[in-house]
Amino acid sequence: MLAIDIQNVTYSYPDTTTAIENISLQIPMGSKIALLGPNGAGKSTLLHHLNGLKLPQEGSISIMGVPLNKKSAKLIRQKVGLVFQDPDDQVISGTVWEDVQFGPRNLGLSEEEIEAVCNVALGSVGMLEFKQKAPYQLSYGQKKRVAIAGVLAMKPDIVILDEPMSYLDPQGQDEVAALLQGLNFMGKTVLLSTHDVDFAVSWADTIIIMKDGKLLEYGGPELLVNEKIVREAKLHLPRIARLFRMIPDLNLERLPTNEQEAARLLYKLLNFQETSFK
């Protein structure tokens, strides 16, 4: 079963601005997907469609085989959890616990079930000990983790995050990256939008690149070391690729996408140099 099936979707805002135009994508279950593109590319609008916050004006979207429409939107939101870019838009209750239990309570779960799912959700993001804290007492990174816990408490099969790394310090970014990896290990399909090319190329198994509301490219991490594509998308090469790009007369068929590929390439180059001088 596909996690997400998007066919020829177009959406325009009331002022006639076309946010996304004729987008078609198919995303398998269990994927790790990074959505990239310049500001105004339509990334957030597309994410809002996948959670049922917006409905296609043209084309169709199916989530795990369920067609998205007005009648199915509530069911879709149970299957797809959306974490907003700014946690202050999502974490709004008096305490962390009240915020995380809001979704399960609206589903009609019993008090025992709510207690169980919220404890698991907060524990999975390392925030269980903060459950009686008010959101204003938390750091920005902690609030991001609470927002993710609120989504996880709904037990979605697909987790979507809009710019999860924005405004986080390096430690906060590392914590969120580990959490995203853990979600995928749990069997969840994880899709996020990001401007962080280095993170995307090292974490994702699928890359989606948008520009001007259209799908520019769709494929594996190797897309982000293709200089023509990166330039057209107004992105930049990952740091590791840029480093190898600066070495004269290297003539690589493809630049490395991550540290493991770079290490293997360096090992081959060093062995070649050593053999050449013998």
Rank of each mutant, 00 (worst) to 15 (best):
Q101N: 09
V91C: 09
I207T: 00
L265V: 08
L68G: 03
A34F: 11
A34W: 10
L216F: 15
L2N: 12
S31M: 09
K79M: 14
A41S: 15
A34Q: 02
L224N: 08
A263W: 08
P56S: 07
Y13M: 08
T189L: 01
K144H: 07
A241F: 09
L128G: 03
G220E: 15
E222F: 10
K228E: 15
T16G: 01
I27R: 00
P256T: 10
I240N: 03
N39T: 15
L270Q: 12
R239Q: 14
R254A: 12
N8H: 14
I27C: 00
A178S: 15
V125E: 04
P28C: 11
P135F: 03
I114M: 10
G141L: 06
G81D: 01
P248E: 10
V230P: 05
V117D: 04
V100A: 01
I63Q: 03
R145G: 03
R264W: 03
K228G: 09
V96K: 01
K70W: 07
Q273Y: 07
R231T: 15
Y267A: 15
S124D: 15
I148C: 04
P135I: 09
T206H: 05
S24L: 09
M210N: 05
M154Y: 03
H195F: 06
P87Y: 11
K144P: 05
L161N: 05
P87K: 00
E98W: 00
G30F: 07
N51A: 06
S139C: 08
I158H: 06
F185C: 10
V201N: 01
L46A: 03
A3R: 02
R245D: 13
G81Y: 03
L36I: 11
E21L: 09
